[in-house]
């Protein structure tokens, strides 16, 4: 779990906010409290990580309103909605829009903390994936167009001769490109090259 992760609580009810913050404190989970959706929106930025525990009913800007705004801003912050009696239709709508979960008041301890943890894991994963993909993209970005074509075919296990015929270049030229790729990606063996290829495919496939 990332140390920077925080639980962001947005609820208009002071009692609920206080209670949540105390409970989270007992498990050493840092949190930040917001009285209204607009307060949170003001404080929000790309760097924020963790999860959002959001009351679905609030005056002026509801939880759903805030969710919509965050999606529009490209936020990937996992949202757990707090719902009350009779809010199921709203909760269903929230899930459809990509909320990770909803919990009904009053909360059962395990339910709540487990779900918060799950949401934090989701956040973690999502952010890690985002980080990996970025690294892969950055790594491969050093290769030229021709070198990338060679890399993919080498990593797929094709012979130099086949690659040369495929690309319409000489076998010798393929070998030069291959050497450049190995050098640029910092690998010495074919096996290492293959692993990079698999990793890229895994990340890109997400």
């Amino acid at each position: 779990m990332d140390d920077k992760q925080k639980v962001y609580v947005v609820d208009d009810d002071e009692g609920v906010r206080d209670g949540l913050s105390l409970l989270l404190a007992t498990i050493g989970q840092p949190c930040e409290l917001f009285e209204s959706a607009s307060d949170f929106l003001e404080a929000y930025n790309d760097e924020i990580c963790g999860c959002l525990v959001l009351d679905i009913r609030m005056p002026r800007m509801t939880g759903l309103d805030l969710q919509e705004k965050l999606i529009a801003m490209g936020s990937k912050l996992p949202i757990i909605f707090i719902t009350g009696h009779g809010d199921i239709p709203m909760a269903v709508e929230a899930m459809r829009r990509g909320a990770v979960d909803f919990i009904r008041k009053p909360f059962r301890e395990h339910g709540l903390l487990e779900r918060i943890n799950e949401a934090l894991d989701v956040d973690d994963t999502v952010r890690k994936q985002a980080t990996d993909r970025k690294a892969v993209e950055e790594r491969l970005a050093v290769l030229t167009e021709r070198e990338l074509e060679v890399f993919e075919r080498v990593a797929d296990g094709h012979m130099n001769k086949v690659i040369a015929a495929d690309l319409g270049i000489s076998e010798r030229t393929v070998e030069v490109h291959r050497g450049q790729v190995m050098k640029k990606l910092g690998v010495r063996t074919l096996a290492q090259l293959v692993r990079i290829k698999i990793e890229c495919e895994l990340i890109m496939a997400d």
Binding site: D18, G19, L22, L23, A25, K105, P106, L112
Partner: peptide, 12 residues
């Protein structure tokens, strides 16, 4: 609302 708060304080 108060029940939720109570439950949270009790758990904590």
């Amino acid at each position: 609302q108060p029940l939720t708060a109570i439950s949270l304080f009790a758990q904590a």
